[in-house]
Design a protein around this nucleic acid. Structure first.
Lengths: 204, 204, 204, 204
DNA sequence: CATGAATGAGCGTTCATTCAT
DNA sequence: CATGAATGAACGCTCATTCAT
């Protein structure tokens, strides 16, 4: 589309995006019809197609906007910190806060991975995140801060722990993101057998 | 249903389950129609509704059978080993092998979590797996084998690392499950900062 | 589709073809909806898509079947007659009879010429008819039976006279096709200024 | 409507008519949306409904203007010539020139004949043209210039030859209208068997 | 057991038209 | 005069499900 929108139009578009995000996350992408979306906002069907090319296009917009925002939040959080381990920690904490306020995105991304037409887009976003993390892990390994190993695998593991605890603890149980971030970092830094597990520095 | 089936019927049912699993995993649950399934097997529509009450029923059967099988494989692997840490390791290795031969199930479970009508079933299965793991972690903490902490969170983290590396390394990159299992255990046992990271016993 | 049809299926398909032909001819292709077609036959929407891939496909089937049949009728009429002028006359008479019993096709072909997605198909059919006629004209010129000239243009003119009188006299005024065929032949053979206009042999 | 328009308004209206004529002829009446028309001219939707009551109204305007213009061109061409055969020839030549510069109208008229809501208007215009021609033919027959016969049928045949050769030779092959007019007249005056076919007077 | 024709609610999408600005 | 957001009926089409054979 790329239509230029008036402020009022911009707001309408935002309403559609927000409402669709909530419905897709709650009810699923396929079971949520365009009719349900416009009825929920009390507008005509045409409005939807004034702002989006298709239902699929809307979904991709949601996905892309989410990925963009999360990445921005992480970069902002890391600021000009230079130590790779500290950078990772800052990114993890920022991500956790972000998920707490964007719970719907989580399930949308999971769904997107399961359907051919969306999967490639998601994977591209994940490759970026993985590469960001891998680079930090590699730097830390090179500097001797952490033990040598397969940086990609380690990065993936860290992202996995963050992701699963965000889902189950923050989104599922509603626990405070800073607390869960502590647990992610504790687990990732020391593992199960680490001597001083539980005695890591607290940040937030 | 719960119909009594002839051996031939049992085989037909199995063919439908297998083909549907593959199509759902490749193409998505919703985009795959019942017509596509029966056409793919060269049978009439009636066959489908003879063996399954509905498309949804078929999907739940696939899910349930998968969870049942994975759990059985894990229990078998742990055998009569009594050390909780060793039991976890055996379960992780067994799971990794199983995922390598049941790659379709992974995406199906991810999808199921995203839709209201399936999510509750999946979560029930996951609660069982989590509780199994949590119990082992708690035992290990009680015996002093691993540092104290929130057993549920730690169990979730271990499952998360297993899951994400199964997906990305075994299913995504096709690496040998035993090798990836080593990496899961290494990371979970020692974390990033563990002194002897990378020097753990190799098994397979 | 190319589905194998039972006799009952074949009949249903025929009903759809016939009813659609009538509706398209009377009301126009676009103004006639698939819903109108199935409602008119008292069947469900799905029936339509069981027999045809799309509304466009149905229309093309009607067109192709008509062209095929007309061509066959012309070839049959010419039989083993060898004189080119006599062959043309036989073909004209046969065509006129055919149009009298297939009036709907006329307007459908005219419509098809006006829309990009159908025009190429129609033009292909018309090229065949033109080439058939042109060949006969050329033969007649070569044998000295008719005056030399541009055979393509002459063939086109003969087809044009046949076509316009079929439309206005046979379809429009309901006059007997054999009588109109006489007039076509009279005009084409002698023109306005031909001395003996109106004194040609009568056939039917 | 029948609104009084400013010179600027008159130009806008003309632009809409010209662009719509081109799009309808190229793409078809139904497949061409009002949105496409206004987008193509870079104006808003309101402009369209300021100048035309509806899409159908616009189409009828195009048709009526075309018929009006063609009739005027023919009358002008015939001037004060009194011989009916000469008048017909002049009208045919003028028509051919006009079609060459108004090719879009041809397909629009063909389309209009195929849809109930437009057909009656077209037929009215054609009745006028036929009656004009029939009168000339009748006069020629009465004066003995051409052989007796059904004047209506002969007139229709002449119009049919003009029409089909305009379409195929002038519009389709891009041949010069004056040359094609020669062929129309040659064929209509002498037919296939006329002794002196091809030796008619040349005009242009 | 099995077929495949049939159903019809519901889908995503279009588009002629209106009207507040 | 002109814009473009909004409407909503209608469209072509899909598909889970049923059932006569």
């Amino acid at each position: 589309m790329g239509r230029r929108l008036t402020p009022r139009g911009e707001q309408r578009r935002g309403e559609l995006l927000a409402y669709a995000t909530e419905r897709f996350a709650t009810n699923g992408y396929h079971p949520t019809s365009v009719a349900e979306l416009v009825d929920g906002l009390g507008v005509g069907k045409g409005v939807f197609y004034w702002y989006f090319e298709s239902k699929e296009d809307l979904f991709l917009e949601i996905l892309r906007a989410g990925e963009r925002e999360l990445r921005r939040v992480q970069l902002d959080a890391m600021g000009d910190e230079t130590d790779p381990v500290a950078r990772m920690e800052l990114a993890i904490r920022a991500s956790m806060e972000w998920w707490a306020t964007h719970r719907e995105l989580y399930v949308l991304i999971e769904f997107a991975r399961t359907e051919a037409s969306f999967a490639s887009g998601v994977r591209k976003g994940e490759r970026v995140a993985l590469e960001d993390t891998r680079r930090l892990v590699q730097e830390a390994m090179d500097s001797g801060a952490i033990a040598d190993g397969n940086a990609t695998v380690v990065a993936q593991a860290v992202l996995g722990v963050s992701s699963v605890l965000a889902r189950t603890q923050v989104l599922g149980r509603g626990r405070p993101p800073s607390e869960v971030a502590d647990e992610v970092i504790d687990f990732c830094w020391h593992g199960l057998l680490g001597r001083d597990a539980g005695q890591t520095r607290r940040t937030a």
